Amino acid sequence: MSGALLEVRGLTKHFGGGAHPVRAVEDVSFAIQPGEVLGLVGESGSGKSTIGRLILRLLDPTAGSVRFGGDEIATAPERKLKALRRRAQMVFQDPFASLNPRLRVRDIIGEALDAHGLARGRRTERIGELMETVGLPAAHMTRYPHEFSGGQRQRIGIARALAVEPELIVADEPVSALDVSVQAQVLNLMQDLRARFGLAMLFISHDLDVVELMCDRIAVLYLGRVMEIGPAEIVTARPRHPYTQALLAASPKADPDAPKLSRTLKGDIPSPMAPPSGCVFRTRCPYAMPACAEVVPPLRDAGDGRAYACILDSLPSRPEVA
C-alpha cells in the first residue's frame, strides 16, 4: 500500500436503520496507485456505484476509512472536501442527466473552473482547450447539451471532470448508456487521456470484457463484498472464485466449447436487506457446502498477486449446464 493514491479500508455503507438496514457495501478494502486503473465489476445491485460515491464523499460511510493522498476523507468535515474534489472527479453513467440542460457547454465546463478559481483571465481559452482535448470543436462551446449526441455529451462530462486537473477519475459505468458503436470511441478516449495525463481511475462496470480492456487490476464485487481482486490478466485467465467464473462464462467472448457454470447466473442477487449468512454468494454457488453458511470467508492470498474470498483451496472442474 505504500505510496498509494487512494486507500480504502473496511468501507461499509448501510442505508436505513432498524433490524434490517440495506447493506449496500460491507467491509470493502482496496488501494489504487498513482496512474493505475482499478476496475470494479459486478451485477446490478452489487454496490459498485455506492462505493464510487463514498470515495468522493457524495455519500457518508457507515464505517471504514478512505484515505486520499494520505488524508482521511471518510470523516473529514465538509469545508475540507473542496481540495479533494479538485483532486478527484466523477464521470457519470448518464451523460444527459449529469449535464444541466439550461446551461451552455462553456458554462457547464466553466463551473468547475470557477469553483476552484482556475483559469482566471483565460477562461474561454481553457474551455476551448478542454473541448478539443476530448475531441469536440471549441466553437461548439456555445451550444446546449441537447444539441449533442450521447457520445458527445459524455465527452463534455469528461471535459468537465478534467477541468480541475484531477489525479483520480471515478468513472461510473461511463459507456453503458451509449450505443455500442460509440462505446469504443469513448473508451479509446479515456485510455488516451489516462496515458497523456497520468490519471488514476476507479472504473466501474457490469461488463467484465470492458473492465479487462481498460484496467490494470480488477475487483469483483457481489452483494457489497469483494469476491476476488488482482491483476486483470490473471483474474480473467485463471479465476479462483466461483462468481468470477460465472461472470466470465456469461461473457459474449467466452469459449463456447469450454466447460462453464452457465451462460447466466441462476436466480437473482439476494436482497441487501437480508443477505445470506456466511458467504453471500452461497445461494447461487454450485460448490456451496454447509460450512459456507457459517463463516464469512476473508480474502485469501492466492500467491499470484491476487486474493479471493472462498473457503475452497481450489475449485472442482466446472460443471456442464444443459
Rank of each mutant, 00 (worst) to 15 (best):
A302Q: 08
R238F: 09
P290W: 01
H206I: 02
I311Q: 02
L299P: 02
T236Y: 02
S277E: 08
G267F: 01
P252F: 10
D207C: 10
I218R: 00
R300T: 15
A258S: 09
H206Y: 05
G278E: 03
V235H: 05
V295H: 04
I269A: 12
G303D: 10
P242N: 13
Q185C: 00
M227S: 06
A254I: 11
A254S: 13
D192T: 13
L208V: 15
G303F: 14
P276W: 14
M227K: 12
V226S: 04
V235G: 05
H241S: 11
I218P: 02
Q191S: 10
S205K: 08
P259C: 12
D216L: 03
S262H: 07
E212I: 06
D207L: 03
Y243S: 08
M190C: 03
V186Q: 04
P297G: 12
E212M: 06
D257Y: 09
E233K: 11
D207E: 10
C285V: 11
L299S: 00
V295G: 00
L208A: 06
F197P: 12
A200N: 14
G198K: 07
V220S: 02
M201Y: 15
L193K: 14
V220L: 02
A246K: 11
S262P: 00
K266A: 13
I204W: 14
V296K: 00
A274C: 05
C215V: 06
I269N: 01
Y287I: 01
V296D: 00
Q185V: 14
S251L: 11
D301F: 14
P252T: 13
S314P: 03
M227G: 07
E233L: 12
T244V: 07
S181G: 15
A288N: 02
D192W: 09
T244K: 12
A254D: 05
Y287K: 01
A184G: 07
L248A: 14
V280L: 01
I204F: 15
Y243R: 09
P276F: 10
M289T: 09
V296I: 13
A288F: 06
K260T: 12
Y222S: 05
I229M: 08
E228M: 09
L189H: 09
L315C: 07
P231G: 14
A274W: 04
L247F: 12
P242L: 08
D313L: 04
D209V: 14
N188T: 04
C292H: 05
R263C: 10
L208C: 11
L261K: 01
A232T: 15
A288L: 08
D301T: 13
L248D: 01
R240W: 03
F197H: 14
R284L: 06
A293E: 10
P239A: 15
V186G: 03
Q183L: 09
Q185G: 06
K266M: 06
M190P: 02
K266E: 07
P239K: 12
D216C: 04
L208Q: 03
L261A: 12
